[in-house]
């Protein structure tokens, strides 16, 4: 296998899965340590990962997501090889990865070290004990964030957000800012996210229903209301689920934790701050280089 890879020039010292902040930071640090055989693979058609859809400020020196990505790309070595619109569909113990893309079809790549920086995904409504119909108008908070900030599509108001973690708080503030009616439902008795994300709740007088959850959806075609744990019904046309994130580690199923594998960013653990993602990415790049 290795021989074929070398002949076909599909052998890399370091393969990095994911071109978000963690993957880009890892690539840059490995490059700065002298590694020149690096391939970054990204399933979307852009670099920068989730920051792409983060219109709010607070990254680095008070930048928003796209601005922060730009600073990363400005400092990014030109000759680093990356592929967009490419999904890794398998990782194998023989240090090969199977890639799928329009350009190359299904292709096997050999690597010496693998950095998994595949980010995380949101817990979606179907995973929760929520009864009722299955109408249109139910999204994950991040899905709506992308729709608003990248594609300019606004949610139908009123909006209910389940969960007051950072994403829930950020979305509540943004929807209030653009004139939408919004309410939060939080199962605990206090708000969840960082303090700096909480002030929007007070500023826009966003109602928060504490100590309860959503138990039922209503509406035949489109969402019309949700029922809370105490039986109260909240009329709404949009429900955003913001109850948590899960690291994307499914690619590792069946391969365990070999010494050539390095995890960083939200696919390792969920990070609250961009600085710790950058730090973890750098560390992964360094430890991959050390093993070469």
């Amino acid at each position: 296998m290795e021989k074929t890879c070398v002949e076909q020039k599909k052998q890399y010292d370091i393969l990095i899965i994911g071109a978000g902040v963690a993957g880009l930071s890892a690539a840059k640090s490995a490059y700065e340590l002298g590694c020149r055989s690096i391939l970054v693979v990204e399933h979307t058609n852009y670099l920068g990962g989730i920051l792409h859809q983060c219109a709010h400020y607070g990254f680095g020196d008070g930048l928003n997501g796209p601005e922060y990505i730009q600073t990363l790309l400005d400092a990014f070595p030109n000759e680093l090889e990356y592929r967009l619109n490419t999904t890794v569909i398998g990782i194998h113990a023989d240090k090969t990865a199977v890639l799928s893309s329009a350009e190359y079809g299904v292709q096997t790549i050999c690597f010496s070290q693998l950095i998994l920086a595949a980010g995380c995904r949101e817990i979606q409504a179907g995973a929760l004990d929520i009864a009722g119909t299955r109408p249109m108008g139910v999204y994950t908070a991040g899905q709506m964030q992308e729709m608003i900030n990248v594609y300019g599509i606004l949610p139908q108001s009123p909006v209910v957000i389940l969960g007051s973690g950072d994403i829930g708080l950020i979305m509540a503030k943004q929807i209030a800012e653009i004139g939408g009616e919004v309410a939060l439902v939080e199962q605990n008795s206090v708000l969840g996210g960082l303090e700096r994300n909480q002030w929007g709740i007070e500023q826009y007088a966003i109602p928060v229903y504490f100590d309860t959850t959503i138990t039922e959806l209503h509406g035949e075609k489109h969402l019309s209301a949700v029922t809370l744990g105490n039986g109260a019904e909240l009329p709404c046309k949009t429900l955003l689920i913001a109850v948590g994130l899960i690291p994307n580690q499914e690619l590792l199923d069946g391969i365990g934790h070999p010494d050539w594998l390095h995890l960083c960013g939200n696919c390792n653990r969920i990070h609250a701050m961009i600085e710790s993602v950058v730090y973890e990415g750098k560390k992964a790049g360094i430890s991959a280089c050390e093993k070469l």
Binding site: H43, N85, T86, T87, I89, S100, S101, A102, G105, V106
Partner: peptide
């Protein structure tokens, strides 16, 4: 078919 994957979970291509 092979190619660009749109649905990441089920690996469904464009």
């Amino acid at each position: 078919t092979d190619g660009q994957i749109i649905c990441q979970c089920e690996q469904i291509t464009k």
